[in-house]
Amino acid sequence: MPHVEKGMRVGLFGGSFNPPHAGHALVAEIALRTLGLDQLWWMVTPGNPLKAGKSLAPLGERIRHSEEIATEPRIKVTAFEARYKVRYTADTIKLVLARNPGVDFIWIMGADNLAQFHRWQNWQEIVRSVPIAVIDRPGSTLALISSKMAKTFGHARLNERDAAALARYKPPIWTFIHGPRSSLSSTALRNEGSASQL
């Protein structure tokens, strides 16, 4: 786990990053700027339980490619979930909060994940344990109003103009952040790679 100090604001940005791309870097950059983060942990997961069976590049390769893309000094590429044998986001957040008292963490995710967030293990527990920032992604803006999470926790949505203060709020609290969007996706990049090998 990267080193942090009490009072810091830290974003938790997890994913398979299979492969990582400029769209991920854009989400991280928007989160750093809008939320006033001291660090953003780019957490390369051993595997996504909702994507079981998909071709997954080796963890070391995904870490290396992430480090090549995530060059901003405040971004810390890490794969501590593999070391602690953690599979689910709810368990990751519990572990991070227990080991880092006094640090203000925010879960960062692209809006493409918001639409299916209710399929995540213990998703309501996640919302109640850490502030969440959802960063807009192409084709996913409507998840802001249509997703089960947005409907269930609509009362806990913080206006985007107040996003810089998100870390100081007690969960459940979340915000939706608009901004520049990249149309890149890991799925599309994997498919292109497969096609080029034919």
Rank of each mutant, 00 (worst) to 15 (best):
M1N: 10
H3M: 08
V4N: 01
V4E: 01
R9W: 01
L12I: 15
L12G: 01
F13T: 07
G14V: 01
N18V: 05
N18K: 05
P20F: 07
H21F: 08
A22R: 13
G23F: 09
A25D: 11
A28M: 00
A28R: 03
A28H: 02
E29D: 12
E29V: 06
I30S: 01
L32A: 01
R33G: 06
R33I: 05
T34K: 15
G36P: 04
W42D: 02
W42T: 05
V44N: 04
G47P: 00
L50T: 04
L50K: 04
A52R: 12
G53S: 03
S55V: 14
S55D: 12
P58D: 04
I63C: 10
R64F: 13
H65V: 13
E67Y: 05
I69G: 05
P73Q: 06
I75G: 01
K76N: 02
K76R: 12
T78S: 12
Y84D: 12
V86T: 14
R87F: 08
R87G: 15
A90V: 15
A90W: 12
T92E: 12
T92A: 14
I93N: 08
K94V: 09
N100H: 15
N100L: 11
P101K: 08
P101V: 10
G102D: 06
V103L: 07
M109P: 00
G110D: 06
G110Y: 06
G110I: 07
Q116D: 12
F117P: 01
H118A: 11
R119T: 09
R119Q: 09
R119K: 14
Q121P: 03
Q121R: 15
I132H: 02
A133V: 02
I135V: 11
I135Q: 00
G139L: 08
G139C: 03
S140Q: 04
T141V: 10
L142S: 14
S146V: 13
S147D: 06
M149P: 00
T152M: 10
L158V: 15
L158M: 14
A164E: 14
L166Q: 05
L166E: 08
A167V: 06
Y169V: 07
Y169R: 10
P172E: 02
P172I: 10
P172D: 04
W174S: 06
T175I: 11
T175L: 07
F176C: 12
F176M: 03
I177G: 03
G179C: 05
P180N: 15
S182T: 10
L184Q: 11
S185D: 13
S186Q: 09
G193W: 11
S196Q: 13
Q197E: 14
